Simulated assay, not measured.
Amino acid sequence: MLRKLVSLSRFVIAIPFFFTLLFALFLIIYESASVVRAIFRFGAIFDPSVGSVKAVAISIIEGIDVYLIAIGAYIISMGLYSLFIDDDAPLPKWLQIRDLEDLKRNLMSVIIAVLAVLFLKEVFAWDGSRDILSFGLAISAIIVSLVFFMAKLHVLKGDK
């Protein structure tokens, strides 16, 4: 009886699976609506000045950032599902998660992309008044740490 209860307890993970999937879907729908609004707003007040083009570029980069966060939530959701609920789920090869290290690696890859896009947004928005070098170095340090950790995961797991 206890063994059956322990076996069934893995389905508790259905709760974070459901909510991370819901969060990913919400972000995708919300940002898609924001992109459509921005397209119509930009079309209505088209101004080819440098400031206007810069504002549109920043808006696009912010949209990409939100989509990347949604992808991260989706990867977590699918990872939880395949690790705890159904390990034979029909997922694309790049999303097949066999253990927690695979999930961590996929998530760290998304975090690196989000940080790079965040820095790109700051570069586009930079007006010369802030210290962007310190910000870039801080993000670089985080990215280097994550890449180092990912490399250690590969070595520990025996991946090439």
Score class of each variant (00 low, 15 high):
L5Y: 11
V6M: 14
A14P: 00
A14N: 12
I15F: 15
F19P: 02
F19T: 15
F19N: 07
F19Y: 13
F23S: 13
A24M: 10
L25W: 06
F26E: 07
L27D: 08
I29Y: 11
V36R: 04
R37H: 09
I39C: 09
F40E: 15
R41W: 07
R41A: 13
F42W: 06
G43T: 10
A44F: 07
S52A: 13
S52R: 01
V56K: 09
A57D: 11
I61G: 05
E62N: 12
V66R: 09
V66K: 10
L68M: 07
A70N: 00
G72K: 00
Y74K: 04
I76D: 02
I76P: 01
M78T: 13
L83R: 05
L83C: 11
F84N: 05
P92H: 13
K93D: 11
W94Y: 10
W94I: 05
Q96Y: 02
L103G: 02
K104W: 11
K104Q: 15
R105Q: 02
L107H: 04
L107Q: 01
L107N: 03
S109P: 00
V110T: 06
A113V: 10
L115H: 13
K121V: 06
E122T: 09
E122A: 14
W126S: 15
W126C: 13
D131W: 12
G136F: 11
A141H: 09
I143W: 06
V144S: 06
S145K: 10
V155E: 10
K157F: 07
D159R: 07
K160S: 04
